[in-house]
Simulated assay, not measured.
Amino acid sequence: MKTLILVRHGKSSWNYDVGDRQRPLKTRGLNDTRLVARYFLRYQEMPDKIFSSPAKRAHETCKIFLKTSEKSENKVTIIDDLYDFNGRSVIGFIKNLDDDIDSVMIFGHNHAFTSISNIFGDRFIDNLPTSGLVKINFDINNWKSLEKGKTELIIVPKELR
């Protein structure tokens, strides 16, 4: 059994003269991510491995989950291929994970995460909103054989406010 948890970065700010990778979270993004992290961690544990896009907004979102779970920031691995908006690189990354890893959490971007949730999950998502989380379980032993799984959980911050 393998478990994939996708977390879309929180709402980011366009109020800074920085490149796309450097855009920080805005206050709403910080607050929504805290809500989702608290809700998730009330019922679930952080997975074996945690990966993040190098984009500041994704990494900041990841750090909120780590702080909420009282895990060290050195538990996250930054992966350039996760700075992906169509999902091909993320899917390639997932399919090449070490099979010793049973559960993984990835912090990244849309449209990639909505697309991946719909390709591999069994519940349709029109749009995974910022700070949204999807957990999908797979009845497989190795990541290379990734196929349709069962969507166990979808958390949308708007439903928690």
Rank of each mutant, 00 (worst) to 15 (best):
I78M: 13
V18C: 08
N86R: 12
D32S: 11
I106T: 06
I50R: 02
L30P: 00
T3E: 15
L35C: 03
S53D: 07
L25Y: 06
G121Q: 05
S131C: 09
D80I: 05
N142H: 12
D126Q: 12
S69A: 15
D17P: 02
D20N: 14
M105A: 14
S12E: 04
F40A: 06
S52G: 04
L133H: 09
K95Q: 15
F40G: 06
L66F: 08
E70F: 12
N142F: 06
F85N: 10
R28S: 12
P54V: 07
G87Y: 05
V104T: 14
Y39K: 14
H9N: 10
N141P: 00
K75E: 15
F113W: 03
R8Q: 12
L97H: 08
R38G: 01
G10M: 11
L82S: 09
S13W: 10
H9L: 12
F107E: 11
K75I: 03
M105C: 13
D32T: 07
F51R: 08
H111K: 03
A112S: 15
D80L: 10
K56H: 06
I50V: 15
I136Y: 09
I140W: 01
C62G: 03
R38K: 15
S115R: 12
N74A: 00
P47L: 09
S89P: 00
I5C: 02
D80W: 01
N110I: 01
Y43R: 12
L6E: 05
L128W: 05
K26Y: 05
R57V: 04
G132E: 04
I106C: 08
G87M: 08
F85L: 14
N142E: 14
F120T: 03
D32N: 15
I140Q: 02
S72M: 02
T77A: 09
L4F: 10
E60G: 01
D48R: 02
T27L: 13
M105Q: 10
L133T: 11
F113R: 02
F85T: 15
A37R: 06
N127W: 05
F65E: 03
T68R: 00
G19L: 09
S12M: 08
T114H: 01
N86M: 12
D20C: 08
R42N: 14
I79L: 11
L41V: 05
I106A: 04
D126E: 15
D32C: 02
H109W: 05
K95F: 06
F120S: 04
C62L: 06
R88S: 13
C62N: 09
H9M: 11
V134A: 13
G92W: 00
P129A: 01
F65G: 03
K67C: 00
L4N: 07
N110Y: 02
I64Q: 01
T27V: 11
A112E: 01
D98Y: 06
D81E: 15
V76C: 11
P24D: 10
P47R: 04
S115K: 12
D102S: 14
Y16I: 11
K2A: 07
G19H: 02
V134R: 03
I119P: 00
N142W: 00
A55V: 07
F113P: 00
V134M: 07
P54N: 13
Y39D: 13
L66V: 08
A58N: 09
F138M: 04
K67V: 01
S115N: 13
K26P: 00
